[in-house]
Amino acid sequence: MADTIIKMEDLAFSYPAEEGNVPLAALNGVSLSIERGSFVAVLGHNGSGKSTLAKHMNAVLLPLGGKVWVDGMDTCDENLLLEVRRRVGMVFQNPDNQIVANVVEEDVAFGPENLGIPTEEIRQRVDAALQAVGMEEFVLQAPHHLSGGQKQRIAIAGIIAMEPACIVLDESTAMLDPSGRREVLDTVRRLNREKGITIVLITHHMDEAALADRIVVMDGGRAVMDGAPKEILTRMAELRAIGLDVPHTVELLYGLREDGFDVPVDALSVEDCADAIVAALAPRA
């Protein structure tokens, strides 16, 4: 219990309905505990409630039913609002719509400035945060001259400067090209490993989810699967039934299995998959 950073209990939420309609539940009794220092991926097709879930993690939305605690603090307590938001930072999809200032250092300083941190310390935090995302040479650049991946790293730096315990990324790689996506993923993995920051990665990409320690699958406002990537990503039939794909590697291994090869189905990365196939072929050769 001590090391749960975010705890949700029977969380329910629905957006205010348009006139004449009955409000549709966006979250339908989600119970979830996220451990400090873990790397959790959240999967789900469009409209399954991923963003709604994310917004409950830092009190942007407040539960209509159930409870959410961040580091033991009830998110409904208005006095704790800033502290909750400081501990759980959020990176969004569109890099352009979350950058506030037109100089990189000013943007990274925005969070600490709001928290009333003394000037000298803001300076240190900004430099440290930019270093942590590998963008220190861009301190004085204008953000609109940067690439998408670089902008997202600046957004991450802006959150790190608040010294959070957890970073939630809501499809933050969706608008990026493959190299930008790799930049962002490498950055968050490093922050997770080296600084022990908890990462919640919301994504559509199976290969991104495969990087996590744990995967939560959402469908219709419920958490329908929860477990290690090797366990979740190999449940092909179930994933297909809720409109998700399995990684190409898993699909290939399933196919080989059906054709009578003795391969494991839980080799997720391309390298592991190749090794598994080679191992299966070796006795025949």
Binding site: V60, F92, V100, E106, N114, L115, I117, V126, M162
Partner: peptide
């Protein structure tokens, strides 16, 4: 929303980098 997530709550108690 992004500004709220970064603890923006008006000019009160705000410090500055420069």
């Amino acid at each position: 929303v992004a500004m709220e997530c970064r603890c923006y709550h008006g000019g009160q108690g705000r410090t500055k980098l420069h």
